[in-house]
Amino acid sequence: EVTIKANLIFANGSTQTAEFKGTFEKATSEAYAYADTSKKDNGEYTVDVADKGYTLNIKFAG
């Protein structure tokens, strides 16, 4: 089991951190699914992958 950390960075400057656990593939998939659901309210996003994929910096356009 691994933990994927997602740092969500919103257009207004606020941030949120979420953690997803499971296999690398499952946790990563859940992090992207979470970003997709947040996209409806926060606009399109880009992802900067860090820490060999264990940290995702997800920046929303607003």
Rank of each mutant, 00 (worst) to 15 (best):
E1C: 14
E1N: 11
E1A: 10
V2I: 11
V2A: 06
V2M: 05
V2R: 05
T3M: 08
T3V: 13
T3C: 12
T3I: 13
I4V: 10
K5D: 02
K5R: 14
K5S: 07
K5A: 06
A6V: 15
A6M: 14
N7Q: 08
N7V: 15
N7W: 08
N7G: 01
N7E: 05
L8P: 00
I9M: 11
I9N: 06
I9P: 01
I9H: 10
I9R: 07
F10H: 04
F10C: 05
F10E: 01
F10I: 02
F10D: 02
A11Y: 08
A11K: 10
A11R: 10
N12S: 08
N12I: 04
G13H: 05
G13L: 05
G13C: 09
S14G: 10
S14E: 13
S14D: 13
T15M: 13
T15Y: 11
T15N: 07
T15D: 04
Q16I: 15
Q16H: 13
Q16Y: 14
T17V: 12
A18D: 04
A18M: 15
A18F: 15
A18Q: 13
E19Y: 15
E19Q: 10
F20C: 03
F20I: 02
K21Q: 09
K21S: 11
G22D: 04
G22F: 03
G22I: 02
T23M: 06
F24V: 07
E25T: 10
E25A: 12
E25C: 12
K26M: 12
A27K: 00
A27H: 00
S29E: 14
S29C: 14
E30D: 14
E30R: 08
A31Y: 01
A31H: 01
A31D: 00
A31L: 05
Y32K: 05
Y32W: 07
A33W: 08
A33G: 07
A33N: 09
A33R: 12
Y34S: 03
Y34F: 14
A35C: 09
A35N: 02
D36C: 10
D36H: 07
D36Y: 06
D36N: 12
T37Y: 14
S38V: 15
S38R: 15
K39Q: 08
K39R: 12
K39D: 03
K40I: 13
K40P: 11
K40E: 11
K40D: 09
K40H: 11
K40R: 12
K40A: 13
D41H: 13
D41I: 13
D41M: 13
D41L: 13
N42M: 10
G43Q: 05
E44K: 07
E44F: 09
E44C: 13
Y45H: 02
T46V: 11
T46K: 08
T46C: 11
V47F: 04
V47S: 04
V47I: 10
D48T: 14
D48H: 12
D48K: 09
V49D: 03
V49R: 07
V49A: 07
V49T: 10
A50T: 13
A50R: 12
A50I: 12
A50W: 09
K52S: 14
K52P: 03
K52G: 15
G53D: 03
G53A: 03
G53C: 04
G53M: 03
Y54E: 04
Y54C: 08
T55Q: 06
T55E: 05
L56R: 00
L56A: 00
L56K: 00
N57I: 14
I58V: 06
I58Q: 00
K59G: 04
K59V: 13
F60P: 00
F60D: 01
A61P: 08
A61L: 14
A61N: 12
A61S: 14
A61C: 12
G62S: 10
G62F: 09
G62Q: 09
G62V: 09
G62E: 08
